[in-house]
Design a protein around this nucleic acid. Structure first.
Lengths: 166, 166
DNA sequence: CTAAAATAGTCGGTCGTCCAACTAAATGCC
DNA sequence: GGCATTTAGTTGGACGACCGACTATTTTAG
């Protein structure tokens, strides 16, 4: 009859960290799982802050991007490219935003394959309120000093660039 | 007629980074989006390495955890706790693993609310092969030196602990 | 000892991500 | 010019994560 097993180490870590300690000192694996865990935490915080405004962080990013476009509109393909997500993710986000009345699709007469996305007035309002909400939260990341934040950012940036992310 | 807009900055960044530059120097936001991006990259790498073995990294983590339990079985609740995921995510993962024949559910006679998960022989084989595959890949994280990896890990760890993650 | 509260797991639904496959339109090449 | 190739976007399906709600069991408190 199996009883609840007790691992010979600390509190709780993602499997990768346990794995690392057992299999080899794959700090890479340890780091990988830590990054995934941190991402999970941060995304949960951001989504929670945005929930009262009826959007998620993924959709917030889309609104931001559109609002910063010089013409006020952006082809869906550009959105996917800038956010580095699959085209279908963009379709999905825009579908939701459109059904919420925050965004409008406009056909491109010049290139009839393309579709522009444009913020509605409601979209602009929600974006403004959401931005305010995000700036107000006390972020997990705020647990790091500004210097540590920069340092982390730089490290991740070189990781990304070595992964060919730019 | 809207034309494809050109942002007055670099290649491509997630919206949060653009947002940061425009709205304020919220390095927190910049860092947040960078973490999310890196997570996306890493998870894609890991899943790609595991695809030939028919599992994902999420399910791999479950296999690892079960295999490291002292009794060879683990109550589902412990799995969720250690991986820090929602109970329904565990149910989901175990459902898939079970239907793949990699894991077995066992009732706990002592506490009939509980269910144990146990690896099948196939599960052990897949785990071994998967671990090998993961150790063989040339990881994005390997773009950092060992020292940088440790440094990043420490930074993220203090971030997590300030978020009350332990 | 019994009623209330906590715990374990599941079900149904939402959301975001990806892939494969497909349509429509524009571009390239001979 | 006309056909092959590329590009833009969508659809359908898989997957993992979450939440709310619910059932079945302990456990706890009075």
């Amino acid at each position: 009859m199996p009883t609840e097993p007790k691992l010979p180490f600390d509190p709780i870590e993602r499997a990768g960290e346990i794995w690392a300690r057992r299999i080899g000192e794959s700090t890479a694996m340890k780091l990988a799982t830590s990054i995934m865990r941190v991402q999970q935490l941060i995304l949960a915080e951001l989504d929670a802050a945005l929930r009262p405004h009826g959007i998620t962080f993924a959709r917030y990013e889309v609104l931001v991007l559109i609002s910063f476009s010089s013409e006020g509109t952006l082809p869906l393909s550009k959105i996917g490219e800038r956010l580095m997500v699959h085209p279908t993710s963009v379709t999905n986000a825009i579908d939701r935003l459109e059904s919420q009345g925050l965004v409008r699709r406009l056909p491109d007469e010049a290139d009839r394959r393309r579709t522009f996305a444009e913020l509605t007035d409601d979209g602009k309002d929600v974006l403004a309120a959401s931005t305010k909400a995000l700036m107000a939260i006390d972020f997990a990341i705020d647990g790091l000093t500004a210097k540590q934040q920069d340092q982390t950012y730089d490290l991740l940036r070189s990781l990304r660039s070595s992964a060919g992310d730019f």
